[in-house]
Measured scan of single mutants.
Amino acid sequence: ENVVSAPMPGKVLRVLVRVGDRVRVGQGLLVLEAMKMENEIPSPRDGVVKRILVKEGEIVDTGQPLIELG
């Protein structure tokens, strides 16, 4: 699984990683606000951040690609 998608609609509050960062399974990639709750979106696997597909403040839909892992 190379693309991390939004599990719910919401607003991207914070991106916690940068392109080139090594991440571990379960590590927070970004914080999504949904229904006034902050939800940290975890990495599904170990890898390297290849691309960040959203910006802070952006509104996303369920299933929208957020981050690509390499």
Rank of each mutant, 00 (worst) to 15 (best):
P44M: 15
V25P: 15
V19S: 13
K11R: 08
P65Y: 07
L30G: 07
G63T: 13
I41T: 09
L66T: 09
G20P: 02
V3M: 11
R45S: 15
L32G: 03
M37Q: 05
M37P: 06
N39R: 06
V60Q: 13
V15I: 11
M8F: 05
I67D: 00
K50Q: 10
I59Y: 06
G70Y: 12
V25W: 12
R14D: 06
G70D: 10
M37K: 04
V17F: 12
V15D: 08
R14Q: 06
M35T: 10
L30A: 13
L69Q: 09
P44V: 13
E38L: 14
N39K: 12
P42M: 14
V15W: 04
E68P: 00
R24L: 12
P9D: 04
R45P: 14
G70N: 10
M8S: 15
V23M: 11
L13M: 12
V48K: 03
I67H: 07
S5P: 10
L30Y: 05
M37D: 05
D46L: 03
V4T: 13
N2A: 14
R45L: 15
V19Y: 04
L66V: 04
V31P: 00
E56K: 02
R18A: 13
G28V: 10
D46K: 02
E58D: 13
L16H: 07
N2E: 15
Q64R: 05
L13W: 06
S43E: 00
V19D: 13
D61V: 08
L32E: 06
P9K: 05
K11Y: 10
I52M: 07
M8L: 12
S43T: 04
T62Y: 08
K11L: 08
G26Y: 12
L30C: 01
V31T: 12
R14W: 13
G63S: 07
Q27M: 02
E56W: 02
G63R: 03
E33I: 10
L29I: 07
E68G: 00
G47P: 00
M37C: 01
P65R: 00
K55E: 14
L53E: 15
Q27F: 05
D21G: 04
P44D: 15
G47C: 01
A34H: 14
D46Q: 03
L16W: 04
L69D: 15
P44G: 14
V3C: 01
V4P: 12
E40H: 06
M8W: 15
R45E: 14
G28W: 07
Q64G: 15
V25A: 15
L66F: 02
R22A: 05
E56S: 03
S43C: 00
V31I: 07
P44E: 15
N39S: 09
V60T: 10
G28T: 12
R22T: 14
M37W: 12
T62S: 04
G28D: 11
G26H: 10
L29P: 00
P44Y: 15
N2K: 03
I67W: 14
V49L: 09
A6F: 15
D46A: 03
P65S: 04
R51Y: 15
E1L: 00
E1P: 00
E33H: 07
I67V: 07
E68W: 01
N2R: 00
E33N: 10
M37Y: 12
V25H: 14
